[in-house]
Design a protein around this nucleic acid. Structure first.
Lengths: 137, 137
DNA sequence: CTGTATCCGGTTCGATACTG
DNA sequence: CAGTATCGAACCGGATACAG
């Protein structure tokens, strides 16, 4: 259980929900899933369509991502018990509200995309200076 | 060559800078580093102090994180060629501007911390069959 | 003091195969 | 169609040892 209920969001505490949320966001397909689901609002989206809208994702990862989101009450699942069975996903209010700050990050990335890209290239050509000869990625 | 000069930020394209940025944000210590560095502005911060302010981080990860940020021009490095050598880090304008949207995510996490936490607990007690038996975390 | 290199473990992720 | 299970690969992250 959480060590201190009155504690404010301590990003540095691994046990803090804020930290867990950040970790969750960091998973590979999370932000893409949120974006697709948010754009689909207020409609529900099926598993297959979700997969179609997230190029490259596998069943496993889509399932995992969806489960993770549901575990944090970011997502609801509606099962249509027909044949063939169809399952519809939809963001909760909580999940939808998360899309706002996430969209801000996306917007930032789009806005400064060129600068980031340039930086990555310049990294190669840099002669010396104090330029970071980073080679981690 | 980058295939997307005029392309809009395509989050789904692994080669797109926006996607790379999201991946970088997702790394374990990134957001914490940005926060600490942003709070230190406009002062510079030394390696040791940075380490002190990010509990639990190892030299390697701090170095990696810093390198990654520098590779994207989010950070500048000033080496003081003395003995002992001291290195000062400081966010670039680009890096500092990233703190804003990141802070929005942090704020969201803090605001909804309780709901997330509750959801995580409820996951345990839930007797429902289709309840998310998430075991990813 | 400020890093880098190496080893190693844990987790994430992906392809495939299988069940309802 | 909608998912789960299993396996193996790749990567992230940590401890230690070492270099400038």
């Amino acid at each position: 259980m959480t060590p201190s209920p009155g504690r404010r969001g301590d990003l540095f505490d691994p046990a803090c929900p804020t930290r867990r949320l950040l970790d969750r966001i960091g998973t590979k397909w999370f932000s893409m899933a949120v974006k697709v689901l948010a754009e689909a609002e207020p409609d529900e989206v099926g598993f297959a369509e979700l997969r179609r809208r997230i190029p490259g994702i596998s069943q496993k990862m889509l399932s995992s991502t969806l489960q993770g989101m549901a575990a944090d009450s970011l997502l609801t699942r509606r099962v249509e018990a027909t044949n063939p069975p169809r399952v519809h996903y939809r963001l909760t209010e909580l999940g939808l509200s998360l899309d706002a700050p996430l969209a801000a990050v996306r917007a930032w990335a789009e806005e400064h995309m060129a600068e980031i890209d340039e930086a990555g290239l310049k990294d190669q050509a840099a002669g010396s200076r104090e330029a970071t000869t980073a080679a981690s990625d």
